[in-house]
Computed example of a mutant assay.
Amino acid sequence: MKKSAFDIVLEDRKKLVERIIENMEKGYFFTKEGWNNLAVLPQNPVSNLYYKGGNRLKLMFEAIDNNYQDPRWFTFKQAQEKGWKIKKGAKGILCEKWIFTKKEKEKDEKGNEKEVEVPLPKPIVNYFIVFNGEQVEGIPPYSKTTFTKDEILKTVNNFIKSSEVKIREIAQTEAYYSPSRDEIVLPLREAFKSEEAFLRTTLHEMCHSTGHSTRLNRNQTGEFGTPSYAREELIAELGSLFTETSLGFKIEGEHFNDHSNYLKSWIGALKDDYNELFRACSEAEKASNYLLERYNTFEKTQEKTNDKTPKEKKRIIKKLKEDELEL
């Protein structure tokens, strides 16, 4: 019997989650050696859109595992239409496409016909296969803006300044976001191994802050070791990762807190339901976009006096806000 698109998508999800769990059981999320390549913001050069959510994470994994330096991914048909040729033996990656609404025509109170979007009783699932730019012959070389360490630190410091949540640095050993007080508490900067480690931890806590009831309203009541706690931590970790790459770079340095505890809680949640990763990706994308919009507004106010934001970074943030390549 031929497999349905739904079954194929779920099987592919399971493979990805099993791969991640295997990494987590060894004590890391991506490769043990770490990663530092340019291809962590997957995009389609034909449609000029960025991949989001689960598709984004899946393509990031492939780029890191294969050390791709090209962030461009597209279908066989798109390559063919451009006159590009997929290299012999190249293996494509399955991406998901979920359709939740349909367009219908209806009449307004004046009897005029208009087209509206209505929710489907059951979402339609489909999939498509994409190839990386390094698997293609004839494609123009990719060029990307790179940033110095000083530029990265300055950008993320400005990103922190854009927070609508109060951030306090005090002499204690834990970093956390308090939903009841709606504030982020961090150890003193001197307590961190590096400036980068401080910035990564702060981004993680800023992603937590988006879950407040006045913002994206996520469940943040779980105690350590519970499924809801693990889910929120996974959202914050993925959200901070998405935010870094959306800004156009990766920040080096570990979080202040012990990652092994987080990994253990994530493993349990993912083993119970491998779809949890994709739900977390969707929520992480929302959290990241919320913070990026705040940052974009902050940058606009700074432009009036001193415009030094690289044009490439502005373009990325603007495109991420406009794009609709989901899941």
Rank of each mutant, 00 (worst) to 15 (best):
M1P: 13
M1G: 13
E11K: 09
E11A: 14
K14L: 08
V17L: 02
E22F: 11
N23C: 01
M24D: 00
Y28M: 07
F29T: 02
N44G: 01
N48F: 08
Y51W: 00
G53A: 05
L57N: 04
Q69T: 09
P71D: 07
W73H: 04
K85F: 12
K88H: 10
A90Q: 00
K103Y: 09
K105V: 03
E106P: 12
G111P: 02
N112G: 09
E113I: 05
V118S: 04
V118L: 03
P121G: 02
P121R: 04
P123I: 03
I124E: 06
Y127M: 03
F128T: 10
V130S: 05
V136N: 02
P141D: 05
K144Y: 07
T146S: 04
T146W: 13
D150N: 08
I152W: 07
N158S: 11
I160V: 04
K161P: 05
K166Y: 09
I167W: 13
R168Q: 15
A175D: 05
S178I: 08
S180V: 11
A191Y: 08
A197D: 12
C207K: 06
L216A: 01
Y229P: 06
A230H: 06
L238H: 07
S246W: 01
G253A: 04
N261C: 12
D272V: 14
N275M: 14
N275A: 15
N275K: 11
E276W: 08
L277M: 03
R279L: 10
E283Q: 15
E293Q: 13
R294Y: 04
R294G: 14
Y295S: 05
Y295L: 03
K304H: 10
K304P: 01
K304W: 15
N306F: 15
K308F: 14
K308S: 12
E312K: 09
I316H: 04
K318N: 13
K319V: 15
K321G: 15
E322K: 14
E326S: 14
E326T: 15
